[in-house]
């Protein structure tokens, strides 16, 4: 049962991830992304990380998804038919990307078919506090991985600063100038 659930969730997230890049309608892409996030949340749950699964649904499935929808709305991408004059995947890009994925899959299959034993389970990053999800995550986050965790906060700050620097371009001139009339008339 657990196995079946895992395969369903894994297939869902992979197919939805493909849908994100293939779909030509941005809103569809965002919904596909939601499906992918939910599939991953199920996998977390099956692995015993209930807290992580809940966070995945709340933060990614909830908050981030709403932000994505806002961006799509603000950008006002309009009719996908008009936008699609230059497809995202050109012939050459399709071939190269497909080849890359095929090669990676081949490498995994080859390794599996040769019967190469993976590392013993104990070496994987099990949290020291066992599988108690909160304790284990807290130990990892404030223990060995405290530096990446803190650095990620600087990263978010830098990203916000960078976005502000690029997006706010009217501090010097035309800060309070009214919008030109022509565009309003054209819109009407």
């Amino acid at each position: 049962m657990v196995d079946l659930l895992f395969y369903v969730a894994a297939l869902l997230s992979v197919l939805c991830a493909l849908g994100v890049v293939i779909s030509e309608n941005p809103v569809q892409s965002v919904l596909m992304l939601l499906g992918s996030f939910l599939g991953i949340a199920v996998i977390y749950l099956l692995a015993g990380f209930q807290f992580l699964a809940a966070i995945q649904v709340l933060v990614y499935g909830g908050a981030i998804m709403v932000l994505f929808l806002f961006v799509v709305m603000l950008l006002n991408l309009g009719d996908p038919e008009v936008q699609a004059d230059e497809p995202l995947f050109h012939g050459r890009g399709r071939v190269t990307g497909g080849l890359g994925v095929a090669l990676a899959a081949l490498a995994v299959l080859l390794t599996a078919s040769r019967g190469t034993a993976l590392a013993p389970v104990e070496t994987y990053l099990w949290p020291e506090g066992g599988l108690d999800p909160l304790l284990g995550m807290a130990e990892a986050m404030f223990g060995r991985y405290v530096l990446p965790f803190e650095a990620a906060s600087v990263l978010l700050l830098a990203t916000a600063v960078g976005v502000m620097a690029l997006a706010k371009r009217q501090r010097t001139k035309r800060a309070i100038a009214p919008a030109p009339l022509e565009s309003k008339e054209a819109a009407a």
């Binding site: 990676a104 081949l106 490498a107 390794t111 040769r114 993976l118 590392a119 070496t123």
Partner: peptide, 29 residues
């Protein structure tokens, strides 16, 4: 991700210790 699946480690030390695993097609990729 491939290296972690194979060796169970993300540390450089752990990777260097699992050198024979890295010689498999998955490790090389």
């Amino acid at each position: 991700a491939l290296l972690y699946t194979l060796t169970g480690s993300v540390s450089l030390e752990g990777l260097a210790a699992a050198k024979e695993l890295l010689a498999s097609p998955m490790g090389a990729t």
